[in-house]
Amino acid sequence: MIQALAFYLFASVAVASAVLVISARNPVHSVLFLILAFFNAAGLFVLLGAEFLAMILVVVYVGAVAVLFLFVVMMLDINFSELRQGFLTYLPIGGLVGLVLVAELLAVVVGWTLAPDMVGSAITRTPDAISNTEALGRLLYTHYIYLFQAAGLVLLVAMVGAIVLTHRRRTGVRRQNIGAQIARSAKESIEIRKVPSGKGL
């Protein structure tokens, strides 16, 4: 019963916060509601017994991605009234996209079948002796190792690409060159002179 209660709590909060993401007037509030939605999705994962996925969802999406999101939204100077101006003109297109999405989702849910070779393995639950994380690792690093590595490479390429696109050396910026600082010796940086009194250098 507690599980059912927890499910309804997480699910209803997730849906409510998802609605608030798109209806909140202030974009920062939207992002905060998005974070709440992520958090409740993590709660649903825990209820499903997928504790590793739940924690990773919190670490990656809430702890890293949403922080950057919040960063950007806080720094932007958004004019809220200007943002709402085109609302009615864009409503038909937006509504159409939404309808198509709903239709597709319905088609997927109604026509849901497991791939024939997966039917057998879907029924076998994780053995009690090994933990959820271990089971996931055993599958990921054996059966799906190539796909897993390919996904990693795609992410690496995306990361390198982002750095290449945004990184530029600006001239005229004074940077600390720690190697050069440490390489200095007393001989080349200090000069001792006897100053005769009353004369100066």
């Binding site: 504790e51 590793f52 924690m55 919190v58 670490v59 702890g63 933990s131 959820n132 994380t133």
Partner: peptide
């Protein structure tokens, strides 16, 4: 005593 304690702390 959860199995993903370290991840929980990290999260």
């Amino acid at each position: 005593n959860i199995n993903v304690g370290v991840l929980y702390l990290f999260a």
